[in-house]
Simulated scan of single mutants.
Amino acid sequence: MSRSVAVIGGGAIGLSIAWRAAQAGWSVTVHDPAPASGASWVAGGMLAPLSEGWPGEDAVLQVGAASLARWPDFGAELETLSGETLFTSHGSLTVALDAADAADLRTVAEWIAGQGYELELLSRAQIRAAQPSLAPNIRLALLAATESAVDNRALIAALRSACTRSGVEFVAEAVTDPAAVAADQVVVSAGTASARLWPGLPVRPVKGEILRLHRRPGVAPAPTMTIRGSVHGRPVYLVPRGDGLVVGATQHESGEDTQVTVAGVRDLIADAQTLMPSIGEYELHECAAGLRPMSPDNLPIIGRVSDRVVLATGHGRNGVLLTPLTADAVVAELDGAPLAEAKSASPERFTFNDE
Score class of each variant (00 low, 15 high):
G303T: 05
A48K: 02
P347M: 11
P347S: 01
R317Y: 09
L311V: 06
R20Q: 15
L211V: 08
A195C: 11
A327E: 01
R215D: 02
T192H: 08
A174V: 00
S194G: 10
G44K: 01
A345I: 00
P72S: 09
L81K: 03
V236H: 00
G38C: 04
L339W: 06
S194M: 06
G9A: 06
S254M: 09
A109Q: 13
G280R: 10
A193R: 14
G233M: 08
A289N: 00
A312C: 09
A6K: 10
A113T: 00
F74M: 04
A162D: 00
R124Y: 01
G114L: 02
D335L: 12
K207A: 13
D177W: 02
A162N: 00
P293W: 13
N152W: 02
L97C: 06
P72W: 08
G233I: 14
A162K: 00
G319K: 12
P55E: 11
G290M: 04
A100D: 15
G116S: 05
I210N: 11
S82T: 05
S306I: 14
G248A: 09
L213V: 03
R70C: 13
L105P: 12
D177E: 15
S254H: 10
N152M: 02
R292F: 07
S92H: 07
L50A: 07
A141L: 14
A288P: 14
E169A: 11
E120S: 05
I156G: 00
R196L: 11
E173R: 13
P55M: 08
G264L: 15
L322E: 12
V331Y: 04
V309W: 14
L339K: 04
C287M: 13
G229V: 07
G316D: 14
R3H: 08
D184W: 02
V171I: 14
P205I: 07
E169Y: 03
L134G: 03
A65H: 15
G44I: 00
G248N: 10
V246M: 07
R308H: 06
Q62S: 12
A141E: 02
S278D: 15
S67C: 02
A6Y: 06
R228E: 08
V260W: 10
V331P: 08
W26P: 10
A158E: 01
S16H: 09
T80N: 01
P205L: 01
V320I: 15
P136A: 04
H214S: 03
V236G: 05
D328P: 06
D32Q: 05
S89E: 11
F74Y: 12
V331S: 02
L155W: 07
M276P: 04
H214A: 01
A263F: 09
V330C: 09
V262L: 14
N318V: 07
V187G: 15
D267G: 04
L321C: 10
L197N: 07
F74V: 04
